[in-house]
Design a protein around this nucleic acid. Structure first.
Lengths: 182, 182
DNA sequence: CGTTGCATGTAAGGTGTTACATGATTAC
DNA sequence: GTAATCATGTAACACCTTACATGCAACG
């Protein structure tokens, strides 16, 4: 309960629970895949279970075994008042570190002199497809979020994501053009 | 020499050496800070030294002790033919994984309901400053790269970076506006 | 004479992934 | 009937950072 510093992933997981829904680790992963993943990243399932354990240990969430049928239970977690307070305090912190971007495609373009224009084109086109898939996903998530009053901030971020991935597409096309012009 | 798979960081370091300049670990760090950092990220110095050791062990680079004055030497590395071949093969690989984005600022906006509009504004304004600094850096790097014929691909990527950070600024302003309008 | 730059590493520790393991239920 | 979904976790391991340690040279 002292303000131990947690990794950003822990805050992200706690954040998923901040809408006051009880969730299993599995649920958290689903939510992460449909929102966090667009601007942060979706932690591995195993890590989520680990973070949940840690968050429970420090009292930011509480777990409860809910019966799912006669023999089995599942563990559902809910944020506590301490957790809400800690999360708000974390958001208060001024130390916002710069976004981390690891763009493997640009790394390859950067090393273009070791490759061929055709190969670069192929890489960019593949990346274009992946980006279009992301854009489709973010747009789909947007539609599920837009009518929920509680999700006005997530909706804001999803719109941001839509613009982000549209820009990424424009950037790819720009690069493809520049590659052609040589 | 067998195609052991190296982490992306190792390829990035090898990439820095792919312009056939002999470099110390320190030099590699400087170069990373002035180019890689805009679209990938700049590894810690200690990691660079580690990667150089590993790359030398697999024969992708060779090290040489160059005298710097009477008593001391520095270790300068150069890429080998094996290294060039391996790097080209790595670029050939189709498995380009999606760019990793960890945007702490957007994580905070996403959790806006746990914070206040004023606090969000402050965070965004701080991020705006950092982004403007990045834009200034990338523009400066562009100027040093634009006249070197060997650096046409890096120059391409730096121009990409300039557009990327300009877009980031536009996105921040858009968010600031949307926050005002509520 | 103190700070910055050059130059090189080790050690410890946290972060995060993949692979493995298990088992019930639901959908095709 | 077999694949996907729900559900949970452990173990091994790789990756990467921070802190620590050292020492000279140059600049102010």
């Amino acid at each position: 309960m002292t303000d131990r510093q947690l990794p950003a992933t822990a805050w992200a997981v706690l954040g998923v629970l901040s809408w006051d829904r009880e969730m299993t680790g599995y649920d958290v992963k689903q939510w992460a895949d449909h929102s966090l993943t667009f601007f942060y990243w979706s932690p591995a399932v195993s890590q989520i279970y680990g973070e949940l354990k840690r968050l429970e240990a420090v009292g930011y969430i509480t777990g409860r075994d809910e019966p799912v049928d006669e023999q089995r239970t599942k563990r559902v977690y809910a944020i506590t008042d301490d957790g809400r307070k800690a999360l708000t305090e974390w958001l208060e912190e001024s130390s916002v570190d710069a976004p981390v971007l690891k763009h493997g495609v640009m790394l390859r373009v950067w090393l273009g002199h070791m490759s061929t224009p055709e190969r670069l084109r192929a890489t960019l086109l593949q990346h274009r497809e992946q980006t279009e898939a992301m854009l489709a996903d973010v747009t789909a998530s947007e539609r599920s979020a837009e009518h929920e009053p509680d999700w006005s901030y997530p909706a804001l971020v999803l719109r941001w994501g839509e613009r982000y991935y549209r820009n990424e597409l424009a950037q790819i096309d720009e690069l493809l053009q520049e590659l052609d012009g040589r």
